[in-house]
Computed example of a mutant assay.
Amino acid sequence: MLEALKERVNADAGLVRRGRYLTTTFLIQSGDTSWLISIFEGKIVSVTRGPFVMPSSSFALRASEGEWQKFFLAKPPPGSNDLMALVRRKTLRAEGDLQVFMAHLRYFKEALAKLRPAAGGAA
């Protein structure tokens, strides 16, 4: 699922420019599967699938596999179409240094929306 994230985000010059002040590593967990995503100045440099013994990340986004599947639909249902909607419904847990996540929220929303069919736009 997340393997295509690096290529899709890095191909969007506007999104990379929006994240030019963002350098971090964060974790996405879908059920029992985890990925570490490293970003340097808005470009995704690696997407590494776990399992990890002691992953090091700024923050983590954790949801069930079913919730991520709904989020990544071409037209997600209301409440599953936005990261903050998932948080509000308590189906997505955001943990760790949330200042990094919130300061670059639009970047993360648009980056993850790139995994939706038809290239995906802003969430």
Rank of each mutant, 00 (worst) to 15 (best):
E3Q: 12
E3I: 06
E3A: 09
K6V: 03
E7Y: 08
R8T: 10
V9H: 05
N10M: 05
N10Y: 09
A11G: 11
D12C: 00
D12G: 02
A13D: 14
G14V: 04
V16G: 07
R17F: 05
R18T: 10
G19P: 14
Y21R: 14
L22V: 09
T23I: 04
I28M: 10
I28E: 06
Q29C: 03
Q29L: 03
Q29D: 04
G31E: 09
S34Q: 15
W35Q: 11
L36F: 00
F40G: 11
E41K: 14
G42V: 05
K43G: 11
I44D: 14
V45R: 13
V45S: 14
V47G: 06
V47Q: 08
V47R: 09
V47N: 07
T48Q: 15
R49Y: 00
P51D: 05
F52A: 08
V53T: 15
V53D: 15
V53G: 14
V53I: 12
M54R: 15
M54A: 07
P55R: 05
P55Y: 02
P55Q: 04
S56C: 04
S57K: 05
S57G: 02
S58N: 08
S58P: 07
A60S: 13
L61H: 05
L61T: 10
L61K: 04
L61M: 15
A63E: 11
S64R: 09
E65C: 02
E65A: 01
E65H: 06
F72A: 01
A74N: 08
K75R: 12
K75Y: 00
P78C: 04
G79S: 02
S80H: 14
N81K: 13
D82G: 03
M84F: 00
M84D: 09
A85R: 09
A85Q: 13
A85V: 05
V87M: 14
V87R: 15
R88H: 11
R89S: 03
R89Y: 01
K90D: 11
T91Y: 07
T91M: 07
T91N: 07
T91Q: 09
L92C: 03
L92R: 07
L92F: 00
R93A: 01
A94R: 08
E95D: 10
G96T: 10
D97V: 03
L98T: 08
L98I: 12
Q99P: 06
Q99T: 15
V100Q: 14
F101S: 06
H104D: 12
H104R: 13
L105A: 02
L105Q: 11
R106P: 08
Y107F: 12
F108H: 15
K109I: 00
E110H: 15
E110F: 13
E110P: 10
A111C: 06
L112S: 04
L112G: 03
A113T: 09
A113H: 05
L115E: 07
L115N: 04
R116P: 02
R116G: 00
P117M: 00
P117S: 00
A118L: 12
A119L: 15
G120A: 02
G121T: 04
A122I: 08
A122K: 11
A123I: 03
A123N: 11
